[in-house]
């Protein structure tokens, strides 16, 4: 008799733990051909609320962690992903209907992207900051600082590379985030959350919610303790509504780009959207 395998329960990732949705709901996830893959937790607005609390609590520690350490932790994510390469490839194949070769290239690209961002952590002040030559006896410098708690709506189709491409610029800059995964392709994100959980990323820095973006995102967009929102995974009409809601506390908003090529070199566009420039003045004297 063949062995009965142990099936995985796919849960949310909040504050470094893997809770079920407080609502008790889950939804069926299928592959691109409609075959059942698993049940995923369906996050509610209250899960989103809890995730924001976790992200806010983690913000001070993460934003004030020394940049070199932050880089090491991010690099550690890549290391752990490399170790789980086969599973990630299998997840992406199933979720996106890719051949194994293409899925492998996608996972490779995701890991490489994380390595790219890991190297940025301690170079942002060099690249984005400056000493300013003011006309007076003052020492004046500007440094990049994270915006705070950022809501991230991951792209719908690119379940892993897209996800990594929207989360990494946020956390590399020192922000913490609540990410709503692809609705129809959430499983690579759940595996990725397990990578985060085992790679020294402090609990609450990245909180991963699977579920219905249209249900959760408005609560995040209107949440007064969320400082920014990346609408990458929203369609134009949802994004527009979210942007209106986000105006309530003047969130920094990244609008979606339907033509975004997640395989392309990212540049610093995303990262700088959730960076604040702080300028400090001090007199020079004896």
């Amino acid at each position: 008799m063949s062995r009965i395998d142990v099936r995985k329960t796919h849960k949310l990732f909040v504050n470094g733990a893997f809770p079920r949705s407080e609502s008790g709901r889950s939804y069926e996830v299928t592959d691109t051909k409609g075959r059942f893959l698993a049940n995923a937790a369906q996050a509610s607005r209250k899960d989103a609320r809890d995730a924001v609390v976790a992200a806010r609590a983690a913000f001070r520690g993460w934003s004030h962690a020394n940049a070199f350490l932050r880089g090491q932790i991010i690099y550690r994510i890549a290391e752990v992903m490399e170790g789980r390469h086969p599973q990630l490839v299998a997840d992406v194949m199933a979720a996106e209907g890719l051949t194994e070769a293409r899925a492998r290239r996608t996972v490779d690209a995701a890991i490489d992207r994380i390595v790219w961002y890991a190297g940025w952590a301690d170079k942002l002040p060099t690249a984005l900051g400056n000493a300013n030559a003011v006309s007076g006896p003052f020492f004046n410098f500007s440094i990049p600082e994270p915006t705070g708690v950022v809501a991230v709506l991951a792209p719908e189709s690119s379940s892993l590379l897209g996800l990594v491409s929207v989360v990494l610029p946020v956390i590399t800059g020192g922000n913490t985030c609540v990410v709503v995964t692809s609705h129809t392709r959430p499983l690579p994100a759940v595996t990725w959350a397990e990578c985060l959980a085992t790679s020294d990323v402090p609990g609450g820095v990245v909180n991963v919610l699977t579920g219905d973006r249209a249900e959760i995102a408005p609560w995040l967009a209107s949440h007064r303790d969320v400082d920014g929102i990346d609408c990458a995974g929203a369609d134009a009409s949802l994004a527009s509504a979210l942007e209106v809601a986000a105006a309530a506390n003047l969130k920094r908003v990244l609008r979606p780009d339907a033509d975004e090529d997640w395989a392309a070199h990212p540049g610093l566009r995303r990262l700088s959207r959730f960076i604040e420039t702080k300028t400090v003045w001090h007199p020079i004297g004896v």
């Binding site: 300013n132 030559a133 003011v134 006309s135 007076g136 003052f138 004046n140 500007s142 604040e276 420039t277 702080k278 300028t279 400090v280 003045w281 001090h282 007199p283």
Partner: peptide
């Protein structure tokens, strides 16, 4: 966004 230490309300085009 602006922190003035031991001074206040200073502005400069380079800053």
């Amino acid at each position: 966004g602006v922190v003035w230490a031991n001074t206040y309300n200073k502005f400069d085009p380079a800053s």
